[in-house]
Simulated scan of single mutants.
Amino acid sequence: MPPHVVRLVLEAARTAGVSEEELKRLPGVGVLDQEGIRVPTKMLTRVWEISSAAFAEAGGAPRVARLWTPGRFHVWDYVIKSSANLTEAFELAAQHIPAITDPHSAFIVQQDPAGRLTVATRPVSTFGRVSELIGEFVLGLLIQQAGTALGRPVTPVAITVAGEPPRSRSDLLDMYGTPDVQFNASVSSVTFSAPDATAPLPGADPALAAIVRDHAVHTVANARLILGWLDKVHAEIAASFADGPPALDRVAKRMAMSSRTFQRRLHEEGTSWREEVEKVREAEATRLLRDTGLTIDTIAARVGYIDVRALRRAFHRWYGRTPADFRREREQAAIADNHDYLQ
Rank of each mutant, 00 (worst) to 15 (best):
H104I: 03
R66P: 06
L92G: 01
H104M: 10
P103D: 10
A84R: 15
S83D: 00
T87M: 07
A89D: 03
E88P: 08
L67N: 01
L86P: 01
A94Q: 08
T101D: 10
A94T: 03
T87P: 04
Q95P: 02
I100F: 04
A89W: 07
I100A: 05
V79Q: 00
P98G: 04
S105R: 12
V64R: 07
R66V: 14
N85H: 15
S105N: 10
A89M: 10
R63T: 11
P70E: 13
E88L: 10
N85C: 14
T87L: 13
T69A: 13
A65C: 02
D77A: 02
D102P: 11
R72N: 14
R72G: 13
I97T: 06
I100P: 00
A106R: 13
I80H: 03
R66D: 10
V64E: 09
P103W: 08
F90P: 01
F73Q: 09
T87S: 08
A65R: 03
L67I: 01
I97M: 13
I80C: 02
A106E: 06
F73E: 05
S82Q: 15
E88S: 12
F90T: 01
P70A: 13
T101I: 15
H96N: 01
I80K: 02
R63G: 00
A89K: 10
P98D: 06
D77F: 00
P98E: 07
A89Y: 09
P98Q: 02
V79Y: 00
G71T: 10
Q95W: 04
I100K: 03
N85W: 09
T101R: 12
Q95C: 05
S83H: 13
S105K: 09
T87Y: 09
A89L: 12
T69P: 07
L92T: 00
A99V: 00
R66S: 10
V75W: 05
R72S: 14
A99E: 03
Q95N: 12
A93W: 05
P62N: 03
N85R: 10
P70Y: 11
R66H: 11
I100Q: 00
Q95D: 08
A99G: 13
I100C: 05
E91T: 08
P62G: 11
A84C: 02
A94G: 10
T101H: 09
L67W: 02
K81S: 06
W68I: 00
A94I: 00
A93Y: 05
V64Q: 12
R72K: 15
A99P: 11
R72F: 14
I97S: 08
P70W: 12
A99L: 09
A94P: 03
F73D: 03
A89P: 07
T101Y: 12
Y78S: 02
H96E: 07
A65G: 09
